[in-house]
Amino acid sequence: MTRYCRDVRRFVCVSMLFASVAFAAPPTKPVRKPAPAGLDADTLAAFVDAVIEDKAGDLDAAITRYQRVGKAIPNVAYNIADLYRRMEDYERAIEMYKKYLELAPKAPDRAAVQKLIDQLAKTPMLLVVDGDDLDAVVFIDGKPAGPSPLVTRVADGHHVVDRIGPGTYEHDSLTAKAMGYKHITSYREQTGNVVMSTSASYGGSWNDGGKTFHMHDRFTLPPGRVDTVFFKPGQACSPVSFEVPTDGLVYVFIESPRDMNRDGCTPIKVHAQKIQFPAVKP
């Protein structure tokens, strides 16, 4: 963050510090249950190998070994669940924790396991935003979320993601669900001094006063004040106004309901933020 803050304007950094508050992640320490009594020599050896693979960090191999022991053994199901939990594969972890409870309905740790299942089931979606260029910044729903690469968790619901680099721009939208995962990576080279994005389900272009505006795109406008409407007169209840800088670029996010009103205007909020990279390509 420190390096990033040297590179971009302070107001953006301050916002990002506030935006980067993380969700509480599930625990990551291993919790292994011992083998049950009465295993034959081969099964016992497979269980030991699983424990050794797990301790060596080869989690895939540990699961394979446990599966040889047999998933119908409660403690094996538990240990596989524990491995999936540490692999951040919460859906499979929950499946195996439930299997454990099914196999051991009177398990003394039933309440704790059920609590863990509930916690994992509520884990917000993991969002990874990256790209193979330096100094890019990421915005989620128009708010600064951090420098790229960004690894964060997002609350359930619809979100708009914009990644802006000195010479790149990537836009994506997603509907986040608990335990979900999304990787947005940027390859698109784009230059220009204006990036427009919105939470409304609109992705077109419009002309106004001899200028062309492109939603979810990066384009060039002459420096100075810009006043326009949101794609057609009367569609939005207020105009879209922002300042195109002489250096750097402006990120314009139009906050709006996803589905705009068909009868009457739709209330919008315009957030314009100047971004200055170490070397912006105009």
């Binding site: 989690l59 692999m87 951040e88 993991l126 990874v128 690469p149 690894v151 990787h183």
Partner: peptide
């Protein structure tokens, strides 16, 4: 030291 299957850097 992290597992090489994590879906992130």
């Amino acid at each position: 030291t992290e597992w090489d299957g994590l879906k992130r850097c």
